[in-house]
């Protein structure tokens, strides 16, 4: 298993889409922090953050788009592209069970997803603190907020990676995976909310889904019960879709 993971990690670190995403997100974060520094909201500017911690907070609320789009791109070019290249054959015939093969791949992908999810807020807070000072939050402890949101970012990224990884296993093709995942993530909230008018139980399902967690976890005043719900929902989503991914891959014929 460790051999498989080492091989997947090697592939991930040489995956151009991961590097491209990292560079784009790094550059976007630098630009964002510089905008905030030069565009003073007290002087008619549009940017509202005035410290590193506020930049961390605002970048986390934008992070849901990065998680949804970034992970879809990474899944397409890290998982699905192996079907097009034929390299999935090498893994399947390597003498390890299919479950181990796909767990190694999804684990590497999940770590890549966590890196993608952290870059934008991390660069913002570091650069923002250097330029504006770290600052403080009015309604919460800085340390508690940073630790909580840092952990939740990783957990939410893992849950989304698990879902997108499952799509990638099913779809076999980079273009289809990227396209389908982005369309799915952009419309699923609206579809569920609309459908819940006719099936009220869907509203409850939505409120206890990772789709809702990603919207809430950066709230400064998140209650303890909501935090625990977020942790459990994210962990359960990760586990369920990982198992679905394993089941799908075990039955998959490699063409």
């Amino acid at each position: 298993m460790s051999n498989l993971f080492r091989s997947e990690w090697y592939k991930l670190t040489r995956n151009r889409s991961l590097w491209l995403l990292c560079i784009v997100l790094f550059a976007a974060a630098v630009v964002n922090a510089l905008f905030v520094y030069y565009d003073n909201s007290n002087d008619g500017g549009a940017m509202s953050a005035s410290s590193g911690i506020e930049l961390w907070m605002s970048s986390l609320s934008a992070n849901q788009y990065i998680i949804k789009i970034g992970l879809s791109i990474l899944a397409g070019f890290f998982i699905s592209s192996e079907y097009a290249n034929g390299t999935i054959k090498r893994a399947v015939t390597s003498g390890f069970s299919r479950s181990k093969v796909i767990v190694a791949k999804l684990t590497a992908y999940m770590l890549g997803a966590m890196i993608v999810a952290l870059i934008f807020p991390a660069v913002n807070v570091v650069l923002g603190s250097a330029l504006l000072g770290f600052g403080s939050l009015p309604d919460a402890s800085n340390a508690e907020y940073v630790v909580r949101t840092f952990g939740m970012t990783l957990l939410v990224a893992a849950a989304y990676a698990s879902i997108t990884g499952f799509f990638a296993i099913l779809l076999n093709d980079s273009g289809k995976t990227v396209g389908f995942s982005i369309v799915f993530y952009f419309f699923i909230d609206g579809i569920i909310i609309m459908a819940s008018k006719y099936i009220p139980a869907l509203k409850t399902v939505y409120e206890y889904s990772v789709l809702q967690v990603v919207l809430d976890y950066a709230n400064e005043t998140l209650s303890s019960s909501k935090l625990w719900t977020g942790i459990i929902v994210s962990a359960a989503t990760w586990a369920v879709f990982l198992l679905l991914g394993i089941a799908a891959f075990r039955r998959k014929e490699i063409k």
């Binding site: 592939k11 040489r14 151009r16 290249n85 034929g86 390299t87 999935i88 054959k89 090498r90 015939t93």
Partner: peptide, 12 residues
Amino acid sequence: IAIEQPALFPQL
């Protein structure tokens, strides 16, 4: 094993 088209990582 080498079955059908060469199974390679093109960017490597």
